[in-house]
Amino acid sequence: MGTLAAAQPLLIGLLLLWSSYGKFADPQQADRTALPRLVGDSRAKPVYQAVAVVEALIALALLLPPSWAIEAFAAVALSAGFTGFLVYSKVVVPEASCGCAGKSAKPVGNRAIARALLLLATAGLATTASTGWWSAGAGVLVLVVEAVAFAMLSAELDRYWLLPLRRFRIRLSHPYAGTASDDTPLVATQRRVLLSPAYRAVDGLLRSDIHDYWDDEDWRFVSYAARYDGRRATAVFAVPHQDSTPAAIRVAVVDEEGLTLYRPTMLATTG
């Protein structure tokens, strides 16, 4: 137990250095945390940077000889402060990000609070140490396990291990491997209609979004509510399944009684 406790300052020191570096590298992150709410907009950034300085000082004190008990107590106070701040964030400003150790827009979640509690626990353990970490011997090996636990609780690090792991799993077997089909999605038809000369010929008449759509043999039909000469009408597009050229799309404007009022392609051919 003694060597285990003695080893903790090494891990805590490195973690605080990482977290301090993250705050120095991008002080703008302060705006995304709950600090503006807690201390005011103008003081958020200076307070954020001040926390980074305190983190760095405690980290260096823990890492460098001599080993004083006060260092571990300072780490306990700091991590208790972090935990309290994160709980405050989650409750009072749920959309605020943690601003802990780097760029992350994620709001404070249970993982961030668990990580702060783990830091608090390791700092608590460190207060019982009687020697410096450099005399801890085999106790340092346990830190590897703890470091892995910290990494898994750090959303900032997900992209280095969690996302690649998921990507690898999907390469083995993609959940949507069988979704390809010959059916044309409606959105593809909609885009083809927008690109067509037929659409440009009637777009000023259209009053609605797609009202109805149906397939009939080689064609897909898409209808819109329209107004023509002050009257209610329907604009109907015929989109061929096979021919993908924009000019192959036809359109007609039909009134309520079913009379065809306007058909631009016919207009073109009859002059």
Binding site: V187, Q190, R191, L194, D203, L206, D209, I210
Partner: peptide, 14 residues
């Protein structure tokens, strides 16, 4: 905004 986008005569679904 949806109000402005649709005022352009554009479909929110596209």
């Amino acid at each position: 905004t949806p109000a402005a986008f649709s005022a352009l005569g554009l479909s929110l679904s596209s």
